[in-house]
């Protein structure tokens, strides 16, 4: 019985951790390239969740197309906000302005979603949520399998993009030294735009994956973003591999804290770990020089 429970909570933790990773990756990517925190990331997640919800329902339950729609909506939103808000503010040369603007964008998006979608929680049931598999005393849904598959594929694609494509290498060059990359013929503004678009697309897709788990309201993203920030810090700000590891670790911590301690203690345990990391290993789980993180 105990072994079954341990196995079950491990499954729960990995599924939850995979969701956290999807959200946290976008945050860490933006920090790695722009050295900027995006407070509106949570709302990109929420908007992605709503996009998936409405597309899925419009297409008669096509959840997978909902995920694609959320990814596209996230990317389009990132592009639009960069063009209209972030890029003009960056040109002013004050790094604080885009940071404050992300807070403004967050409040604006939350209230716009409140006006569009209303405050009543949406029930996001995918055709896969009710398909439950029971194996050797454990259970998991088809939805969980999709979450892990999509997360793993996304991580692999992102890794391949960063390591093996010209654009990925150019992104890393901009992260290392924006001015020098510019002198080498790389347009930093284009690469910054690309980073924001990828990050927002990840947030949108994360929203689509989280939506069946989240209590879907216009404030849904806010409930996971604090954990995502903690994951980014534990993993090492801007460090993709560290973020993946930290996301899975936090998911497992949540599951086992629920089982053996108390769900009310989850935040104490997670943020206690965050404080310990800041005190004893501020560079994160995987220590790297910041300029090599992305």
């Amino acid at each position: 019985m105990t072994a079954t429970i341990v196995a079950q909570q491990a499954i729960n933790g990995i599924v939850l951790g995979s969701l956290y990773v999807l959200v946290a990756l976008g945050l860490t990517l933006i920090y790695g390239v722009l050295v900027q925190i995006n407070f509106a990331h949570a709302d990109f997640v929420t908007l992605g969740a709503f996009a998936a919800y409405f597309v899925m329902h419009a297409l008669g339950g096509q959840y997978l197309l909902g995920i694609v729609a959320a990814l596209l909506v996230g990317a389009a939103l990132g592009w639009a906000i960069n063009i209209t808000v972030f890029a003009p503010l960056r040109r002013k040369g004050n790094e604080l302005l885009p940071l404050i603007a992300t807070i403004g964008v967050s409040v604006m998006l939350q209230n716009a979603m409140l006006a569009w979608f209303g405050p009543v929680p949406y029930a996001f049931e995918t055709p896969y949520s009710q398909k439950v598999f029971r194996v050797a005393g454990t259970f998991f849904t088809l939805q969980s399998v999709i979450i892990i598959a999509v997360s793993a594929t996304t991580i692999a694609l992102l890794y391949a993009f960063m390591k093996f494509t010209f654009l990925g290498k150019a992104l890393r060059a901009v992260a290392q030294d924006r001015e020098t990359a510019g002198l080498m013929g790389i347009n930093p503004n284009t690469l910054i735009m690309l980073t924001i678009v990828i990050s927002s697309a990840l947030a949108g897709m994360g929203g689509a994956m989280l939506a069946p788990v989240l209590v879907l309201t216009p404030f849904a993203g806010a409930s996971v973003i604090v954990k995502a920030f903690a994951i980014v810090i534990i993993g090492g700000f801007g460090n993709v591999e560290g973020t993946i590891l930290a996301g899975l670790l936090v998911g497992l911590i949540e599951s086992f804290t629920t089982q053996y301690l108390d769900p009310g203690l989850i935040d104490i345990v997670v943020f206690g770990l965050l404080l310990l990391m800041l005190a004893f290993r501020p560079t994160g789980l995987i220590s790297e020089r910041r300029e090599e993180n992305v």
């Binding site: 729960n12 409930s223 949540e254 629920t258 089982q259 108390d262 769900p263 009310g264």
Partner: peptide
């Protein structure tokens, strides 16, 4: 007696504990 904060989203772990 299982209490939780309003920020908890995924209740699978709590359901697992209850099932046990």
């Amino acid at each position: 007696e299982i209490g939780f904060g309003r920020d908890v989203n995924d209740f699978t772990s709590i359901a697992t504990r209850v099932a046990g």
